[in-house]
């Protein structure tokens, strides 16, 4: 997968467990403290909840599910990053759970590398690239792609779950 980032990426860095992630700052609408989450029965664990963002019902996604991470209970650092994400070409507002929100920073295009095809714990198509900062790595997830697989996949999964549960 090629990465076409000519100019530096203006990114919001967030922490999920012990990994640093960077999301496009331009797509971030707001950052919320933890709000009450309504669980959607039979939904996939990745988008298992709904939240109220200024009168809108917004799905809440937990990226940690997609990266196979532990999911401890929220603490005082937990935030919800409300973003606009293109899902199948349709801009959709969704919240992303973050263990901690750091800062907005520029990631130099030159420092971003393509995802190695081997030696990765995670599915390579979920990652647009890996940047370097202060000697550490920053993962740039491909949010559109992650959500798209989910919007297509929830259908059979949810249906079968529903049937087995009843």
């Amino acid at each position: 997968m090629s990465l076409a980032l000519a100019s530096p990426m203006k990114a919001l860095t967030i922490r999920l467990q012990d990994e640093l992630f960077a999301v496009e700052a331009g797509s971030v609408r707001e950052i919320l403290d933890l709000v009450p989450i309504t669980e959607v029965p039979n939904a996939s664990p990745f988008v298992s909840g709904l939240i109220n963002v200024r009168g809108r019902v917004v799905p809440l996604a937990d990226l940690r599910v997609m990266f196979g991470m532990d999911r401890p209970e929220p603490d005082q650092d937990t935030r919800i990053v409300v973003m606009e994400i293109d899902i199948d070409g349709e801009p959709t507002v969704a919240g992303i759970l973050a263990d901690k929100v750091h800062d907005v920073t520029d990631i130099e295009a030159a420092s971003i590398e393509e995802v190695p095809k081997v030696g990765m714990r995670w599915r390579p198509e979920f990652i647009r690239g890996i940047g370097k900062r202060n000697g550490g790595f920053i993962i740039i997830p491909d949010l559109g792609r992650i959500f798209e697989t989910q919007s297509a996949r929830t259908a059979p999964a949810a249906a079968s779950e529903e049937r087995s549960a009843s």
């Binding site: 959607v40 029965p41 039979n42 939904a43 988008v47 709904l50 019902v57 917004v58 799905p59 996604a61 899902i87 199948d88 349709e90 959709t92 507002v93 969704a94 959500f147 989910q150 919007s151 929830t154 259908a155 949810a158 249906a159 529903e162």
Partner: peptide, 11 residues
Amino acid sequence: LSKLHSAIKSF
């Protein structure tokens, strides 16, 4: 409901 949940038929 958004696309992410539209497949869940109970709602």
